[in-house]
């Protein structure tokens, strides 16, 4: 394993400002996630969700403020930061003509990592991929199956931080449930999960905390447990509120 023990929180964002030209996309974002915590980041179109992910992965430089992934600033050391991150785009795109196993081997290979077949199979099992799919080309895989492959990859890489971009969009209720169980598995292994989503219900099902992003900052944050636990209906009202408000 090439990843070093974290020297800080899996994710720490403090007063982050990101500009695209003259346009301020993130405006003083504060966000931190502990190991084994699932954080759902909700927000309307243009609220800055994708930019937040891009900033965490080191694709956009902060104008001010800071981002730390396990203590590393992705802006200055993107490769080191990315070693701590697994990223699942909205539609996990894999190499269609490779099998599930080969895709895992390929992506691990890019970061010069190697796992035994037994380890890979264990990860597939943990991710809930049926055994007959291990050695099938992913061309015929559903979105849920692709996510399972990508989660297995994240598990194999023992990453402290998993970024999920709209993971439940387009999944049927049963697959959503399946996916939520998977997140539970990640939490048990101590990974921090940041999930960017529109899907309030799924977020409410799994998230330990829910943050609401508007105009580049967290405007409201709720937790699942304790006296401040969130009320789904209230959140829904908030979510449906016009962006301009």
């Amino acid at each position: 394993m090439t990843y070093h023990e974290p020297s800080g929180l899996p994710l720490l964002i403090a007063n982050l400002v990101v500009d695209y030209g003259a346009h301020r996309v993130l405006n003083g974002l504060d966000l931190s996630i502990r190991p084994g915590e699932i954080y759902a980041l909700l927000g309307g179109n243009g609220a800055g969700k994708s930019t937040t992910l891009a900033a965490i992965m080191g694709f956009v430089p902060p104008a001010s403020g800071e981002v730390r992934v396990c203590g590393v600033a992705p802006g200055s050391a993107p490769v080191q930061a990315r070693r701590a991150i697994a990223y699942l785009p909205e539609n996990v795109a894999l190499y269609e003509h490779l099998t599930a196993r080969e895709n895992i081997q390929y992506f691990l290979g890019i970061s010069s990592e190697r796992r035994t077949n037994a380890e890979i199979e264990a990860a597939f099992n943990a991710a809930g991929l049926q055994e007959d799919a291990f050695n099938r080309r992913v061309a015929g895989f559903s979105k849920g199956m692709r996510q399972k492959v990508a989660i297995a990859l994240a598990l194999l890489r023992h990453v402290p931080l998993v970024l999920l971009d709209e993971p439940t969009s387009g999944l049927d209720p049963r697959a959503t449930q399946d996916f939520n169980r998977l997140l539970g598995g990640l939490r048990e292994r101590g990974s921090a999960v940041l999930m960017v989503t529109h899907d309030l219900l799924s977020a409410a099902d799994t998230a330990d905390r829910i943050g609401f992003l508007d105009a580049g900052r967290i405007v409201q944050e709720s937790v699942a447990e304790g006296p401040d636990r969130y009320d789904v209906r209230a959140l829904h009202r908030h979510f449906a509120r016009p962006v301009a408000a």
Binding site: F59, V79, R83, Y87, P89, L94, Y95, F107, I110, S111
Partner: peptide, 11 residues
């Protein structure tokens, strides 16, 4: 749709 994921992969 793989580019982002590829780029996010260390190495």
């Amino acid at each position: 749709g793989r580019l982002r994921m590829l780029e996010a992969t260390p190495g």
